[in-house]
């Protein structure tokens, strides 16, 4: 479905990704793990066009993403739930969801998808008129995921969904991830909470300073001594 080969990227003189190649197949949940500053967030930002790739190839179902302007990437079936959620704090929950359905193709199905998201997250329906910025962290994460689903994506990019949340809520958020998986979405998730994310993912890539250091089935990586020591504190 999504395929990256030999992608470089960075900000100004700083290079964050070095010749990175990876793929995500339809129906998979793939995790990208690594330390702070390894380039995980940059990777997602490159895929959704917020940061331009400087070299290499990047395709989504055969469509060249590098030739697609950032605001057109959504139409290719990719929805990005950004780091720290980034809801529009002074818009209501429903208006946030409406923004998720901004692209013309999604507008036609707004009512239908709104029902779907509300069924998936009944809490959002209760709070539909509330300003998004006044909700709790876990509720905001629901809203951010709901907003991404409103565009009817095939692939959902999740950037650190557990960040800044209390431990109890973190467990709930990983439940959310499992639920959208079981709804049939393909998921690419970036996380620092390695132990948890490897339980939800099928496969994983380990990123170190902008390069892929290891990859494989999530269970295998979770069993690797090196990863257990360096990233799971065991």
């Amino acid at each position: 479905m999504l395929e990256l080969s030999n992608v470089n990227a960075g900000y100004g003189a700083f290079q964050a990704l070095f010749g990175l190649s990876m793929r995500v197949e339809a129906g998979e949940a793939v995790a990208v793990i690594g330390a702070n500053g390894a380039g995980k967030t940059t990777l997602l930002r490159v895929i959704s066009g917020l940061v331009p790739a400087r070299g290499g190839e990047m395709t989504m179902e055969g469509r060249d993403l590098r030739l697609t302007p950032a605001h057109r990437i959504v139409e290719a079936g990719i929805a990005h739930v950004p780091e720290s959620r980034r809801l529009f704090p002074r818009l209501s929950v429903e208006d946030n969801l409406r923004m998720g359905a901004f692209v013309p193709a999604a507008r036609a199905k707004f009512a239908e998808r709104l029902e779907y998201v509300y069924a998936l997250f009944p809490r959002l329906k209760e709070r539909r008129q509330q300003l998004a910025g006044t909700m709790s962290g876990g509720e905001q994460q629901m809203c951010a995921i709901g907003r991404a689903l409103m565009s009817g994506p095939k692939l959902v990019l999740l950037d650190e969904p557990s960040m800044g949340l209390a431990p109890v809520i973190v467990a709930q958020v990983f439940d959310l991830v499992k639920r959208i998986r079981s709804e049939g979405y393909t998921v690419l998730i970036v996380e620092q909470n390695v132990a948890q994310v490897l339980k939800v993912a099928d496969r994983a890539y380990l990123l170190e300073v902008g390069r892929i250091k290891a990859s494989g089935r999530a269970g295998d990586l979770a069993a690797s001594d090196e990863i257990r020591k360096a990233y799971m504190g065991l």
Binding site: S48, G49, L50, P69, A70, H71, R72, I73, V74, E75, A79, H80, P82, R86, M99, G100, F102, V103, A106, R147, S151
Partner: peptide, 8 residues
């Protein structure tokens, strides 16, 4: 900044 993610 995140407007492109909404397809805007």
């Amino acid at each position: 900044q995140i407007m492109p993610l909404m397809g805007v």
